[in-house]
Simulated scan of single mutants.
Amino acid sequence: MAVTSAVNPEELRDQQQKWEDAFARNREMFGEEPSAAGVRAAELFRTLGVTRILELGAGQGRDTMFFAQSGFFVTVLDYTVEGTRWIEEKARSLGLSDRITVIQHDIRESFPLKDDTFDACYSHMLYCMALSTEELHMLSAQIRRVIRPRGLNVYTTRHKGDPHYGQGIHRGEDLYEVGGFVVHFFDRDKVQDLADGYQLLDVFEFEEGRLPRRLYQVTMEKIDPPVRVNR
């Protein structure tokens, strides 16, 4: 299904309050166990000697706690007050505050972080949130800025094989509002398109939840821009 219609940015920005309300109603909305994607990413990070992780859109922190308990240092950026507050509370209660730094921040804005700071960036279903393709390009560029050379960007996203693709209210491009939440569905072309400045290492397909949701787990490595030689 080819979808090219424009996105209304204001409709997408309305999503923040929906997440605030959802997290306030249910402090364990996604459960306490780490996601399968988080476990898989941690195995890769250990193999490659990763120490410092940037996690984006951490929600209520189930993967954050798992990463910290696994020995990593984690900096979290999330735009919800409820989510960031709950992650800080969990970190204190588990004695992990020295391994977890939490910053409330909208990832559509420039990250308040220095260049080449992190060994890897991880996000679970952030890329398929209410973000336009233009915003996703800016997101990938910001991640590339703050990870070190040959650092990893590992993200998951729902794809067009998901049962919800094409359902609900169309919000432009490949975004659909289902149950009040907007989802941006990917195909392989979009994964490749967002890999500018990276080497695409792996696209792993998996399922999650009872629907089930169908996702890609994408692993990319930061590369330096090609050297241009004047002839």
Rank of each mutant, 00 (worst) to 15 (best):
T117F: 07
Q142I: 00
L136R: 06
S140M: 00
G197Y: 04
F206G: 15
T133Y: 02
R158A: 08
D196V: 01
F111S: 02
R108S: 08
R171E: 10
I169Q: 15
R108I: 06
F118I: 09
L194N: 03
I169T: 14
R210V: 05
Q192C: 12
G161E: 15
R99I: 13
K90I: 05
L201M: 07
H137G: 03
M129N: 13
Q192P: 08
H159Q: 06
V102N: 13
I147T: 06
A130K: 02
Q167R: 14
S97N: 10
D202I: 03
A141V: 02
E208M: 08
T156A: 06
R150W: 04
A120W: 06
L94G: 04
L139G: 00
H170A: 15
E173N: 05
E134M: 10
S97E: 15
R145G: 11
T117P: 00
R210P: 07
A141Y: 09
F204V: 07
D119E: 10
G197E: 14
I147F: 05
L131R: 09
F118K: 02
Y122I: 12
K90F: 11
D98C: 03
I100Q: 04
D106N: 13
T156G: 11
A141S: 07
H164P: 00
V203K: 09
I169W: 12
D196A: 12
F181G: 03
R171P: 00
I143G: 00
T156V: 10
G95L: 04
G166V: 11
D189S: 12
K190R: 15
M129S: 15
R171C: 12
L201W: 09
D98Y: 08
K160A: 09
R188D: 15
T156Q: 07
F118V: 04
L131N: 04
D116Y: 09
L211E: 14
Q142G: 00
E135K: 01
L131I: 09
E177D: 03
L200I: 02
D202S: 12
P112L: 13
P149H: 10
L211I: 02
Y155E: 07
D187Y: 14
R171F: 07
H159C: 06
E88F: 04
C121G: 04
F181R: 09
S110C: 08
D162H: 12
R158F: 01
K114D: 08
G197N: 05
P163I: 06
V183T: 15
R158I: 05
L126W: 07
I147P: 06
R99G: 05
H105T: 07
D202P: 06
R92T: 14
R99L: 13
E173R: 15
E135W: 02
R188Q: 14
H159S: 09
Y122Q: 10
D174F: 04
D193G: 00
E173Q: 12
V183L: 12
R99A: 15
R145N: 06
L94A: 14
F181Q: 13
G161T: 13
H105K: 01
H170D: 05
G180F: 06
V203R: 11
F111M: 04
Q167P: 00
R213L: 03
D98S: 14
Y127K: 00
Q142L: 01
T133D: 07
H105A: 08
E207T: 14
A91D: 11
H137V: 10
C128E: 01
E135D: 11
M138Y: 05
F181A: 10
N153T: 00
T157H: 13
S97Y: 09
P112E: 10
Q199R: 15
K114A: 14
S110H: 04
E89G: 03
D115G: 01
R108M: 00
